[in-house]
Design a protein around this nucleic acid. Sequence first.
DNA 1: AAAGTGTATATTGTATACAGAATACAATAT
DNA 2: ATATTGTATTCTGTATACAATATACACTTT
Lengths: 224, 224
Amino acid sequence: MSEDLKLNMNAYLPLRDVVFQTLREAILKGDLRPGERLMELQLAAKLGVSRTPIREAIRMLEQEGLAVTIPRKGAEVARMTEKDMEDVLQIREALDDLAVQVACDKITQEQLERLMATMKNFELAVQAGDLSKIVAYDVEFHDVIYEATDNPKLVILLSNLREQIYRYRVEYLKEKENYPMLIVEHEEIVQALKQKNKERVADAMRNHIRNQAEVVKNIIREQE
Amino acid sequence: MSEDLKLNMNAYLPLRDVVFQTLREAILKGDLRPGERLMELQLAAKLGVSRTPIREAIRMLEQEGLAVTIPRKGAEVARMTEKDMEDVLQIREALDDLAVQVACDKITQEQLERLMATMKNFELAVQAGDLSKIVAYDVEFHDVIYEATDNPKLVILLSNLREQIYRYRVEYLKEKENYPMLIVEHEEIVQALKQKNKERVADAMRNHIRNQAEVVKNIIREQE
DNA sequence: AAAGTGTATATTGTATACAGAATACAATAT
DNA sequence: ATATTGTATTCTGTATACAATATACACTTT
């Protein structure tokens, strides 16, 4: 933990939430590395708060699968083996499959338009080579589909799964040569959704997820 | 919160874990009702601990979807509308479908035997009319299948979903006339698993879950 | 050297104190 | 009567103090 974590002091949120968001982002960006210990006093000092909100934020990170705590030993950033990632991806595939099929029935015209707009923005970000926008629009693309399911619990679950994958996937998105395929895959998904063709949309999504899976697993394999 | 919650003082677990288990069980058994406020001081006094472990336990209950907290207002036992339950069941159906298909490939001979033994125990418990055993063996039946997936993250997710359903389903299990169908459904699942017939096993599980779904939704509808 | 023991230190676990926000309710004004 | 304000009270949010445990490391023993 070499970097200066800094709180984004949003006056009216409980500190635990602010701390949670801060630590979460640090983990996702890789500033806090897998296996790194999350020591309460240290974090409290660094963030200028007491241990109480730190502890509560850590409990929340556990929820998300981003931290693991061993009683009387403390918490650390969750490590992920290739097997762990395979497990997560297996679940994500099943739920994304569900999401996209439900979305097929329920997606509104307005959501479809947002989806296309997001896809366009994604392409523009790719052309501009703006990594943070690329990531943001990729996330938004999938979020629109998730929201179209009209199942908030599913949205939360999928966001959570994606989060666990993304902290490795960011590496992948740095490689420009991967963008064209992503764009094609997204377009295929949108086309299938427009046609409300469940089989096609499920195939397209499965293909998209599996391609991600390969890449992410390679990254983990390299790290290990 | 009229009943006396009592801690099961397991010397070496952090109090937050003991409190968590205690509150969790109280919610699942219905001793703490949906919508009931979880007030820190009150709970702390009742359980004979300070607010700190109570607060952390509440954060953990949030994880499980059993509590909801509103900043500066406090926590309450999560309410569930029929729509919420439909959302949960939709997810559970997808994941149980995944679980049972993976189990088809991976289940070991020993696990199959445990499954049959559990089914037998379930039937005996039904004959004896022992509700707590009926519930326990029903849970175990599904747990064996979950574990056969060799995907611990999936096991946790499914246990969590089941938990959200079970606190309503307990009502249903009190009605003896429902048992014969449960037994038949379980048998069908085991048969299909033995044959490693993925389609049949998926159909059987889907049927089992959907029947549950109807019952649970009726119970909620009555409550509302 | 290797294994074990003792002690200092670091870290988590728990209780408590205090500050600030939400709530309930009475008093007042409209 | 209804709405509004003020105030007491209850509750959460946060910091901090103290206790219990784990860890590291020097020291002893074999």
